Measured scan of single mutants.
Amino acid sequence: HNLTITQGKLFFHYNPKLCLSEIHKMEEVSGTKGRQERNDIALKTNGDQASCENELLKFSYIRTSFDKILLRWEPYWPPDFRDLLGFMLFYKEAPYQNVTEFDGQDACGSNSWTVVDIDPPLRSNDPKSQNHPGWLMRGLKPWTQYAIFVKTLVTFSDERRTYGAKSDIIYVQTDATNPSVPLDPISVSNSSSQIILKWKPPSDPNGNITHYLVFWERQAEDSELFELDYCLKGLKLPSRTWSPPFESEDSQKHNQSEYEDSAGECCSCPKTDSQILKELEESSFRKTFEDYLHNVVFVPRKTSSGTGAEDPRPSRKRRSLGDVGNVTVAVPTVAAFPNTSSTSVPTSPEEHRPFEKVVNKESLVISGLRHFTGYRIELQACNQDTPEERCSVAAYVSARTMPEAKADDIVGPVTHEIFENNVVHLMWQEPKEPNGLIVLYEVSYRRYGDEELHLCVSRKHFALERGCRLRGLSPGNYSVRIRATSLAGNGSWTEPTYFYVTDYLDVPSNIA
């Protein structure tokens, strides 16, 4: 807008934040220059609390790290170098490059900038070799853009010569660093050979998330399962459950009422301010606690030095998902009996873990797994792929695949051998790939016309006998059925096997 004052003059007093240069501009645009008398524009009460600059400061050096910015700028000295009290560095987070010096300023003089007072450097006698002032900004957020400017702080001049310097606002972004852990990993099994893994992005990506790394490792069953005799009275049979499938998407929606109208769909109840505040506090606490764990609990591995020492970490090797089922080394339970199943799973520490690289999504279907087997899954978020990966501390989750139908069934015939004193040795093959492992066998036998009897055969007993022995049988026709019990439950009964026990007292003698 054009402003013209045809008559009258300007009068400025007691404006401590208004620089004289701005008042002189007002004289020019209003056409009143030359009308004012000496005392109409006070030299001592206008701009006496402001830094009124008329020179431009330029930054000469900028260096960044993930949490620091090192700045240096060209030296500046007023005509009387004693008038320079120091520099004021202003900075704040700036997602967009549209910041002005006066953003967030209120009537009390406060604003949204963080201000650092910096002492002037030592003055050199040689004007050509003056030290460049600077400042190291610490405690910054990774991968965050900051708006920065600097200006001088000078003393009051009796001659009211307006001098000083100020830089333009520059924008500097800190470097990326390792992201925080992925949030809320959930693993479920939808079949006997697959596990579905879902997660949420890290709360602090500290860069642009480029991919996720998912490692999985087959877990050995508890050692007590191999040692305890679950045929003993009072000892509860062990059981394991597989990871249940995901709930429906509708039930997972946030901010939804727990109660549904019987007449149909209901609208979600909005969260109160107290609920939102509580969630923010919980989120802040979780982030602080995660940072504490990362800094205190997890110790970084030592990389190899120039002395030739090897990095103890196993090298990563990509495998196809079809090879995942046989990740671990199978060892027989008892070496003397080769027909026992290889369900003991000690994992070799030198073995390469299978892994998958996930790009542009937060889910993965891990296939080719062994049925009813526990897996430990390790999830890392990465925001750099080359020249070397920059990934987060791992988040861990466990899951067990679903049982395989008929995996616990005894394959092959049940054979028998009759000894003296009416002892019958029953023999059968253990299931080759049971659900988890076989903890015991149930032997059901009966003599024709009598009630059915049951015998429990422990895992250890089966390994020693290759089956079991029935003792003290009365003469007669017998039928026997056997079924295995694994961590997933009972298998199917075998087809009945028949044998006849004679009275050993009636056996004919070869003595003449």
Rank of each mutant, 00 (worst) to 15 (best):
R318F: 13
E389F: 13
L426D: 01
R240K: 08
C391L: 05
C269Q: 02
G234T: 07
A394H: 14
R286F: 13
Q380R: 04
W216R: 07
P475F: 06
Q275P: 09
Y212V: 11
F499P: 01
V214S: 03
T502N: 08
N490R: 15
L379P: 01
T303I: 06
S367G: 08
T343D: 03
S248I: 15
T307V: 05
P244T: 08
M402S: 10
R353S: 11
H461C: 11
L369T: 11
D229L: 13
Y375E: 00
F289V: 11
R370M: 10
S486R: 02
L213F: 14
V359H: 15
G489W: 13
V358W: 15
R316G: 03
R318G: 04
A263C: 06
V359D: 01
G491Q: 15
V299Q: 06
V414Y: 01
D291K: 03
K460F: 08
A512V: 03
S283Y: 14
N255I: 13
P354L: 11
V327W: 02
S341T: 05
D229M: 15
N421P: 11
D229T: 11
P244M: 14
V397I: 01
E247T: 05
P403A: 13
G472S: 07
R390Q: 11
V480W: 06
P434W: 01
N339D: 15
T303N: 14
N435A: 02
S486I: 00
E417M: 08
A488D: 14
S262G: 10
P349Q: 04
H425C: 02
V414F: 03
E249M: 07
P434N: 07
E265V: 07
S248W: 02
M402Y: 04
A394V: 11
Q256A: 15
W428L: 00
F298D: 15
T288R: 05
T401Q: 00
S486G: 05
L213T: 15
D311P: 08
V331N: 09
L487T: 08
Y445W: 07
H425M: 11
I418Q: 10
P332G: 07
K317E: 15
L293C: 03
D323S: 07
N326F: 14
L470M: 08
S251A: 05
K317W: 03
E227K: 04
L225G: 03
V359A: 10
T340I: 13
G374N: 13
T401A: 06
P354V: 07
F215Q: 07
S315R: 11
S492H: 04
F462D: 02
K432W: 07
T288H: 10
G368M: 14
N326S: 10
H371M: 02
S304F: 13
G472I: 07
V397R: 14
H454W: 04
D273S: 06
L280S: 03
S248V: 07
T494E: 01
S392M: 01
V331R: 07
S367H: 06
S344K: 10
S344H: 13
V329A: 05
G412P: 04
A309I: 14
P475A: 10
P300W: 02
A309R: 12
G325R: 03
K253V: 01
E227Y: 10
E281M: 04
S444T: 13
V331I: 13
C468M: 10
R301H: 13
S509L: 11
D385F: 08
N421Q: 12
R483L: 03
V443I: 08
P338E: 08
W216L: 06
V439E: 05
D250T: 08
Y448I: 14
F499S: 01
A484R: 00
H425D: 14
S262M: 13
S315P: 09
T241P: 10
Q384T: 07
V507L: 02
K236E: 09
G467M: 05
I377P: 01
E442Y: 15
K233R: 12
R471G: 04
S305Y: 08
Y478Q: 06
G264S: 05
H254V: 06
G374R: 03
L455K: 06
L225I: 05
V480I: 15
L280E: 01
K460W: 06
L225R: 09
E442Q: 03
G308S: 12
D273A: 10
S268P: 10
S363W: 09
H211S: 02
L379R: 00
I410L: 11
V345F: 10
K460H: 08
V324P: 09
A463P: 05
E279A: 08
Y212L: 02
R318M: 05
N206F: 14
C267V: 10
H461L: 12
P245C: 04
A395H: 06
D311N: 14
E224Y: 12
T307L: 06
H461T: 09
V334L: 13
T307N: 12
I418M: 01
R400E: 14
I418E: 13
G472K: 13
E282K: 04
A399Y: 09
K361F: 12
G491F: 02
K233S: 08
P332T: 04
G476V: 00
G491H: 02
E282M: 11
E310I: 03
S305M: 06
R400Q: 06
E420L: 09
E404L: 04
V439M: 05
I276Q: 15
T497K: 06
A405K: 14
N295M: 12
R481H: 06
D506W: 09
A395C: 03
S392A: 01
E362W: 13
Q252D: 09
V327R: 08
K271T: 13
F246D: 06
K287R: 06
E227W: 07
T502L: 12
D222K: 11
R390N: 12
G374T: 11
P434A: 08
S363A: 09
N339H: 09
S367T: 10
A399G: 11
E430M: 04
S304K: 00
G467D: 01
E249T: 05
I410V: 15
R481A: 09
L228K: 08
A405F: 14
N208Q: 15
S257Y: 08
V393I: 04
V324M: 14
H416N: 12
L473A: 03
L293F: 00
P245T: 06
E389C: 08
E356M: 12
A488T: 03
P387G: 11
S304A: 15
E249W: 09
P508R: 11
V214I: 14
K460L: 03
R370Q: 08
R390M: 05
V331H: 14
P270F: 14
N208C: 13
S320K: 09
K302V: 11
R218S: 06
S486L: 00
F337I: 06
G449F: 15
T340G: 03
E389T: 11
Y292G: 03
G234H: 04
Q219Y: 15
P205C: 10
P300D: 15
F215G: 08
Y500P: 05
Y396T: 07
V214M: 09
A463N: 08
F372W: 06
Y396W: 05
S398F: 04
T272Y: 12
E495V: 12
F355H: 13
T210R: 14
V214Q: 00
V397H: 09
R471W: 05
K406L: 07
R353F: 03
Y292C: 01
Y445M: 13
I377R: 00
P413Q: 00
L237F: 05
F462I: 04
P332K: 04
C456W: 00
H371I: 13
Y478N: 00
E465N: 10
L321H: 07
R301K: 05
W493V: 09
S304P: 10
Y441G: 00
I366P: 00
H461Y: 07
T347R: 02
K302N: 13
F372R: 08
A335M: 13
D408G: 02
R466W: 14
F355W: 08
V480S: 02
P332I: 11
R471E: 04
S262Y: 07
R446A: 13
S262I: 15
I438Y: 03
E417F: 13
D408N: 14
V358L: 11
V423Q: 11
R240N: 09
K406Y: 06
L470F: 03
E227C: 13
N383T: 04
E378R: 05
C266W: 05
Y259Q: 12
E495K: 15
S363Q: 11
C456Y: 01
F298I: 09
N421M: 12
K302D: 14
S458G: 11
F419R: 12
L453T: 14
S479W: 13
P387L: 11
L225W: 12
N422I: 02
E404G: 11
P387R: 04
Y500T: 07
G472Q: 05
S474K: 06
I366M: 13
E265R: 13
K460A: 08
D409I: 08
